[in-house]
């Protein structure tokens, strides 16, 4: 239910909403999670734009990963095998060198990569490569219908028709919520079961109403 490429506005397509400041977007995501009573693991803003054909797509806008602090890093659950962990660490090492502009080195492995890459960290990282056509996946459904999608419970996620929900369940999530805003969709995920809250939806409407 997701497209594999990110979108650039086509010159003949309708003008998308003006891009908003990356820093304030990060602050809004952080405020949403840190100010919540519930324990959310991450928040992602999927930004609405258009692909080369003018079709509406949701692509990565920004994300804030909090993790599962109560559980402590050492106790974070991972279902990954040793080979999978090596793969994740290798990818992280390469991403680290991509960002820092240097070749992967022993030093890199000491500070950021040698620690286990948890399932939720990996789910969050992989999310950066994804985008959703209008109506596709949980974010696409929420945006297309202008209506929140709230999936709570491992069974509900695991039996969802959406690939992203099923992937989330495999990587230890128990709740995924997608709340539409003017220019995109705010997605929150948690390793705990969190039931629907109008308070959270109101916060999203206030924090992500970019025209104000």
């Amino acid at each position: 239910s997701s497209a594999s490429t990110s979108a650039a506005p086509a010159s003949s397509a309708p003008a998308p909403a003006p891009p908003f400041n990356q820093e304030t977007l990060q602050q809004r995501l952080q405020a949403l999670i840190e100010g919540a009573r519930e324990s959310w693991t991450y928040a992602i803003f999927w930004q609405s734009s258009y692909d080369y054909s003018g079709a509406s797509v949701l692509g990565w806008g920004d994300g804030y990963y909090k993790g599962d602090e109560e559980k402590g890093r050492g106790k974070s659950k991972t279902t990954s095998s040793a080979a999978e962990q090596e793969h994740r660490k290798k990818v992280l090492r390469e991403l680290n060198s991509l960002i820092s502009g240097s070749a992967p080195s022993a030093d890199d492995s000491v500070d950021a990569v040698d620690e286990e890459v948890t399932d939720t960290e990996w789910f969050f990282l992989v999310s950066m490569t994804q985008s959703f056509v209008n109506g596709g996946g949980l974010p696409g459904q929420a945006f297309f219908n202008s209506s929140p999608v709230w999936v709570a419970g491992a069974d509900s996620l695991g039996s969802s028709t959406c690939e992203r929900a099923r992937q989330g369940q495999i990587f230890g999530l128990q709740t995924i919520v997608c709340i539409p805003s003017e220019n995109g969709v705010v997605e929150l995920g948690s390793t705990e079961v969190i039931f629907e809250s109008s308070d959270l939806m109101n916060k999203v409407r206030v924090l992500f109403n970019f025209s104000n």
Binding site: S6, Q26, W60, D62, G67, L95, L98, A112, E115, M128
Partner: peptide, 26 residues
């Protein structure tokens, strides 16, 4: 990794930096 779009680099850099902080505080 070389295919990671430029627009997502800021998010990635922030994630890696915060991960490093979490490691140091653990």
């Amino acid at each position: 990794p070389s295919a990671v779009p430029q627009a997502r680099k800021a998010s990635l850099a922030r994630f890696l930096e915060k991960r490093k902080e979490r490691m140091m505080n653990a």
